[in-house]
Computed example of a mutant assay.
Amino acid sequence: MLITAILKGIDTKRLSEMMLIAATDHFYLDGGHVFDFHSKAFEVLVWANVSQKERILTSLVPMMARPTRSEELHQWQAPLNLVEPIKQAVNELEQNAAQAQPIGGSTDAQLSDDTEEQLLQQLLSDTPEQTIALLRDLLIAGTAPAQLAKLVALAAAERIVRFHTQNDFGDWIAVLHTFTYAHAVHERLLQSDEPLLQRAIFHGAVSVYLDRFLNVPTAARPKPSGSAAPTNHQELLDLLDLRQQVGPAAQWVMDYIHGGGEPGALLNTLGHALLREDAEFHSFQMYEAAVAEYDRWQTAAGSFAEKAKETMLLACTRYLAAHAPTARELPHTAKIAWRLHKGERLFEGE
């Protein structure tokens, strides 16, 4: 029915809200994949040819069929019950809205740098009940939901910056999933004032909390070394030719940023580093989300915004460095395919 409606030209924005409301009826479905994939699918619909829309939408059906509901998982219920505080906060928001008091996107209330820093530290704290209460109070006070979602995404990126390489390698995926989910929530709330989507802010915040063990021990955030700022981007690419260069790559980026390096050129280099690898889907997710969040912070001024942009660059660099180098077979395969497409002969007979 949904697919038929879209193909008949029904308002895509409202339909996306309906689907994402369904994706937030339960908590953090399938580790955030359901919301994230639906959000991306509706982004793609804006650009896709009509002939591709049915294909895009039908790809979402299996995800809604039997997803894992995080509120049923042990870590969301014990040793702290994180489900009930969220439900209570959402109920209070609904009651507040029913009384026609300011809520969510009804105002353009902006947070000060001090308040943003306070919320960021609270999101990274060991007191999730206080985090939920603070988010609820800020929403009731009229803070734009997208602004809160932006800070949840920043906290998730900070988890990646603090991720220690002593953790199991597979745990990079855990902090990645929280970040890409939080980014998807941020993007959706920038486009929608649907109150029910605000539930996803709480789900993302709790996922940030649950990732705290992956910051024990905490990887130290690099500091500017004070040496001459690097200018040759090949140095960074050379680092990513070697294994276990997460720390050195992050240090290179920190010195580059504080040495006045051009962020756009750095993002291009990181994009080049991504494309030369046999990168899997998650690495592309990481790059796309980090670049998008960096761009969102570009519109803000002040020291907090500068540090937020720095966080996005460091998170992206550390993740890509951890997953490099690979066998790099895909670029070779692509070159062969391109030569065949042009009709070239790959091998000449003797």
Rank of each mutant, 00 (worst) to 15 (best):
A279K: 00
V50Y: 11
Q75T: 13
W297D: 00
P145D: 08
S125P: 00
I140S: 07
R188C: 11
A273C: 00
P331M: 01
P145I: 04
S225R: 08
V46E: 14
G204L: 08
E344G: 13
A249I: 03
F213K: 12
L240Q: 02
R69E: 15
F284L: 03
K309Q: 15
L270M: 00
G343K: 04
V152I: 09
L239F: 06
E17A: 11
S125G: 14
L139P: 07
L29Q: 14
E235P: 02
L190G: 09
E288P: 00
P217C: 06
D193T: 11
S227M: 11
E306W: 09
G259N: 07
N96G: 02
R243P: 03
Q244V: 08
R318I: 02
Q75S: 13
L139A: 04
F179S: 11
F202H: 09
R276D: 09
P85E: 10
L124H: 03
Y181R: 02
K307H: 13
A205M: 04
L266P: 01
A149W: 06
I336P: 01
L239M: 02
T326E: 04
T58Q: 14
A22L: 15
F202N: 06
L82N: 03
E17Q: 12
L73R: 12
E348M: 11
A109Q: 10
E277R: 00
E129L: 14
A89T: 03
R345Q: 15
A109L: 15
R55I: 10
V185G: 03
W76T: 03
L340N: 08
Y256C: 02
N232L: 07
E288Q: 13
R243M: 13
A337R: 13
T12F: 03
E344V: 10
G170W: 10
L274E: 00
S225V: 05
V46M: 09
N49A: 15
K223Q: 15
N96M: 09
V50I: 13
T317W: 03
T24N: 14
Q95T: 06
T317N: 06
L190A: 12
V246Y: 08
E116G: 11
L124K: 10
D36H: 06
R318M: 13
A109S: 09
A200L: 02
W172N: 01
D36P: 01
S192Q: 05
M312E: 12
G271I: 00
K307L: 11
A337N: 14
A23G: 02
L236Y: 01
E280P: 01
L138Y: 04
K87I: 08
K53N: 01
Q130L: 15
A41L: 07
F213Y: 15
H233P: 01
W76P: 04
L134D: 13
L197F: 02
V206S: 03
T178F: 00
E348R: 12
Q245S: 06
A149P: 03
Q122G: 12
P224V: 06
R212A: 14
A174C: 05
P248E: 09
W172I: 06
K335F: 11
V61G: 03
Q298W: 05
V61P: 00
Q88R: 12
